[in-house]
Design a protein around this nucleic acid. Structure first.
Lengths: 198, 198
DNA sequence: TCGAACTTTCAGAAATCTCTGAATGTTGTG
DNA sequence: CACAACATTCAGAGATTTCTGAAAGTTCGA
């Protein structure tokens, strides 16, 4: 919006049309597309992509200009990214500069774990909780055992099977996200283990 | 819509308000909520939930009534579910009945693998392909090696690290979906393997 | 305490996604 | 071939999500 915006910090001497900037734009488009296909808001993915690929803290103004989105959007979006643990607030080192800068985790493995954990916690765990209520009769109601219809039993059995699947998925996810960098080795072991039986 | 719809096949003698039906409704709501959080259309998830929990082939009319959605929606939705391999078309056994019935896979593990594979193929693989174009210089351009800037190298390195992550994810997904029912055992082994290092 | 410089909020606008239903297509029977 | 009985398609309606930007809030130096 305003013209009087000299870049006081962290803006590399990049012209608007150098190769790296174009490649960054391609990456931002890529990441935002990936995000929308998996239920992440476009602007959230865009801001994250920008911070990740820039590799240095940026201020709101820069993100607005670069992505062509509003101040409000940047603010809301950063709030979410900070909540998810993907982005950190960084105080400006310059005295008398009240702007808040933000930087994204640069280690792709940590990025992966963080996303996995955050999504599981937010989009999976609460719903698994709710799965129990989809049974005909809540978990332990033995008084009724004798007169449960076949249809009823089949229904509850399916819900239980799904629940077991969720528990497995939970375990797999935990195993993966707890493994630290050993994951590459682990994945090879896993591949061998699962490859053999067939 | 029309009133003249006697149920000629596969409709169990279920009143509108028996316990099982209510539990089915809860499950349909659950599954549709789960779906929307992961980028699946509400009605697609609903139709799939209904077919899965019903456990028997249903015709379009029944789905319309049960879910309160239009004929067109049911048709479009079933087309997608069949493409994804989650639902099968079933010919009516009754002579002179031209309706098509549909049934969903009942084995939850197969369901899991199918969803995993389908989503990977549709939402992941094509984009991983595209990731390569996010580099500054395409994979092999050795002529330029000498004069690549530090900034440029860092960018391409990040893209490569992300690519490696995608390859890992691909491997994990393949390992899981190829493992057949052995997955439960495998998950325990995996947990032990990954749990130890820490 | 004031005011400059920034951030956050949120009602309404805009964009996007999803559904409907009439028109059209398909299939099998007589 | 004509018709009945169903399925499919798709333009436009409707619902939902997302974004904007002005107003309110916050923070800090003087």
């Amino acid at each position: 919006m305003s013209i009087a915006a000299k870049p006081p910090l962290a803006v590399p001497a990049a012209t608007k049309h150098d190769e790296v900037r174009l490649a960054q734009d391609r990456f931002i488009a890529f990441w935002s597309e990936m995000g929308t296909r998996w239920g992440v808001q476009r602007s959230v993915a865009e801001v994250h992509a920008l911070l990740f690929i820039a590799g240095e803290p940026l201020c709101a103004e820069e993100m607005m200009e670069r992505l062509g989105i509003s101040r409000g959007s940047v603010s809301t979006t950063l709030k979410q990214l900070v909540e998810w643990g993907l982005v950190q607030r960084v105080k400006s080192t310059t005295k008398n500069d009240r702007r808040e800068f933000h930087s994204a985790e640069q280690d792709v493995w940590k990025l992966f774990y963080t996303i996995l954990r955050a999504r599981k916690r937010r989009e999976f765990d609460p719903l698994v909780e709710e799965l129990g209520t989809c049974r005909v009769s809540p978990k332990g109601s033995p008084a009724k055992v004798g007169r449960r219809s076949e249809r009823e039993k089949l229904h509850d059995q399916k819900i239980e099977e799904l629940h077991a699947l969720c528990v497995f998925f939970d375990g797999l996810s935990n195993a993966v996200s707890k493994s630290g960098k050993g994951i590459e080795r682990a994945s090879k072991v896993l591949a061998r283990l699962l490859g053999a039986p067939r």
